[in-house]
Nucleic acid binder design. Structure first.
Lengths: 246, 246
DNA sequence: CGAACTCTTGACTAGTGTCAAATTTTGTGG
DNA sequence: CCACAAAATTTGACACTAGTCAAGAGTTCG
């Protein structure tokens, strides 16, 4: 566990939102007035729970999280991954009831912001509101791409696509290459992200490793041959909307 | 082709947004000042095209449309259906490049609104902006549900779920029961909405009809036994966020 | 009226799922 | 820090859902 500087957290929020929409000095100043109360979540604990009224929105400082939905019979589907620098609850901020869960994938450090405070900020600083709106739209675009991925690509391509996305998004979020770019998911979680069973995920990973495009560790996967993976994945980063300017 | 009254169109926009968020008299007045220029689209013509910068946002007055994405190899996945009363391009309104297409499913009558005008309206009338934001969030919730549908339900349930959603949304949009509640899609389009092949869609429809839960016409499907269908579908309308109050 | 889509069906195939058991890794309480 | 229990991985054998191919019939639309 690392010591985290509160001013760094504000900087991180500002750069996360500024990547979505241009912010002026007053906008940045307003963000700096947000109350920062760091909170720790253990792996697999809930940040959001289906059916609840969202009162707080987490800003991810360290660690990963994922959105998921469940079938009545208990089958699970992940909808997206949340990386450091993401506002986790922009999907619910204006809805009266959450339609899905968000759970910590790893140990997570996050700031819990009252939804009312974020709404007020969006109202008083329109640029910030627009930035939050855009961040939510970008995530909706990820949902659509995952729909295409699960609906129309075969198992190998799906897996390759997921890895490409993770890799590019980490880079875009400014996680230094020195830090690990391994995807720390179990094969069951990967299966739920791809509409596959854990057993088949295992077979696919083995095959991708034999082709030399990935390297596997325990409970994690790393990209080895990016171009090869990208070709298998049919990956086009357009849907991530990384270079946004209002 | 029916004659459409412009004031009716404004009413339709107002009620569409008011279903998402409370609007006061001035908000409604502001919406009434929007320029209304009715435009007709033939079935399968594009309202939005991937890669383009969105300059205009359509408001659907009559007819249906769908969002779709394509794989490099040309495979298609639908992401959602658009019904009368939907603002089609809320997903792109603040993005610089569209990541998907929107095409007319049937003959469509729509109002084309300049994106700049909508952005200005969102800025000057915060309630209206919030309503648009919420409409976009609700659609994102549909993407997530479709992800669960395709990823974790079998073909019969997927089809049943799609029909349940269509039925409930039509009702919520206030389409009178007198008008047809048939889903006017080809089996190939249904397949692309469900991650199936057209051939398998045919088999599934046959089976559902034999169970007496649907009735098929040419190029259309109608719900016959709603409770039966709902049971097959594992359908819970929560994700549609129909009763929203800011 | 004909060409081009759709739909339907059957026969066959292939990609994933299911089940089960051995092995390795991880996490926890003493 | 160890020992054990629980969780995750790996593999093989087999089953089954959904895909592919093909051909005939029905529809739609210019």
């Amino acid at each position: 566990v690392r010591v985290i500087d509160i001013s760094d957290v504000h900087d991180k929020m500002i750069s996360s939102l500024a990547r979505c929409h241009r912010l002026d000095g007053d906008d940045r100043e307003a963000i700096r007035t947000l109350p920062v109360e760091l909170r720790h979540y253990h792996a697999s604990s809930h940040l959001v729970r289906e059916g609840q009224t969202p009162h707080r929105c987490a800003f991810l400082v360290e660690g990963f999280a994922y959105r998921q939905k469940l079938t009545l019979s208990g089958h699970r589907s992940l909808c997206s991954l949340q990386l450091p620098g993401d506002f986790v609850d922009l999907q619910n901020i204006y809805l009266s009831e959450s339609d899905h869960d968000v759970q910590a994938l790893t140990e997570v450090t996050a700031v819990d912001l009252p939804v009312a405070v974020l709404r007020a900020l969006a109202g008083s600083r329109p640029n910030v509101g627009t930035a939050m709106w855009i961040q939510g739209l970008s995530e909706a675009s990820i949902f659509r791409e995952w729909l295409l991925n699960i609906g129309r690509r075969d198992a190998r391509s799906r897996m390759a696509h997921l890895l490409c996305e993770f890799s590019i998004r980490l880079q875009a979020a400014g996680v230094p290459a020195s830090e690990s770019h391994d995807l720390p998911m179990t094969q069951e979680q990967l299966g739920d992200a791809l509409g596959l069973t854990a057993v088949h995920v295992n077979r696919v990973l083995k095959s991708l490793e034999e082709n030399g495009v990935i390297i596997r560790g325990k409970r994690q996967v790393r990209v080895d041959d990016w171009d090869g993976l990208r070709r298998i994945a049919d990956f086009n980063p357009r849907y991530l909307h990384l270079r946004q300017e209002g």
